[in-house]
Amino acid sequence: MPAPSHNSGDDIVQSLVADKSHDSAVDESMLYFAAVTDGPEIANIANKRKGLGVGAWLSIIWLALLLTSSFAAPFLPIPDPINDVELPRSGGGEAVVIATPPSLDHLFGLDSSGHDVLSRVIWGARNSLLIGIVSVGLGLLVGGVLGNIAGYFKGKIGGFIGSVLDILLAFPQLILALFVVTVLGHTVANVTFALAIVSTPVLARIARASALSWSEREFVLAARAQGATHRRVIWREVLPNVLPAMFSIALLGIAVVIVAEAGLAIIGAGVKPEVVTWGNIIVGGQGELRGAAHIVLAPSLIIFLTVLSLNFLGDVVRARSDVRESAL
């Protein structure tokens, strides 16, 4: 039973601080100010602050650039990344290994087989992003559904799903992925599948936690009291509140999966080497780190920027989706 409470300043300060402590855009004094005025429209200021900010725009531009160029890769005037290129031959007819450093002709240089690294990075983005987006998408779908159901039905169903998730989470993730790929084969689809299996329980747990807290809100009780079916309550009341948080986590998830793909490739559990992925490019350049570091550095830099952008965007999405109602 709730103790009688009054809508006074202190409460609101507490909740605001708890709620927004991570958000540098809202400074403390505004919290106090919002706290003492009790106007939701005032507590709202933080929400209506100026546009997205430079960082978010840079992230969006970077990701858009990456996505369009990888989609358009077949039509771009870039050298073939896979098929054998005509290598200049020495007098004895022996192929010269030419891992050329970056130049104006080849911005990221050439690798030891004479392939343009930039072209390989762009083609690699196709596969790496595909793996990242599809596996997290699958994880989001399955995990989101399971998590929402588990969070909303706290009883036996919730307990059961929760236990299953715990078991999945307890499995060493890397070994699980390794196992799946080894058994099913080193294709893009299988790696995607393996990473989807790994990401599902994590996303499900987050969805469950979020659904659990939203399900305790009185508006869910109110909807049930109105006679809404469970399906309607989940669909209309719980899910719209859980989704934004899930979406921001999913962005972070894509970043993690992109790195995981590279990791799998390095331990030899990734996509077969003939297919260009960021992981495989790095693996290909591994042997020549000393002489031709650019082969590894170029895709690493791209991964770094992509992960950074995704993380940043994820944060922005989460901060903006915070509806200020919790502040009161």
Binding site: P40, R217, E218, F219, L221, P240, N241, V323, E325
Partner: peptide, 11 residues
Amino acid sequence: FQDPISSLNPR
């Protein structure tokens, strides 16, 4: 309900 804010779906 008691809490007028919590009893309305913010979305």
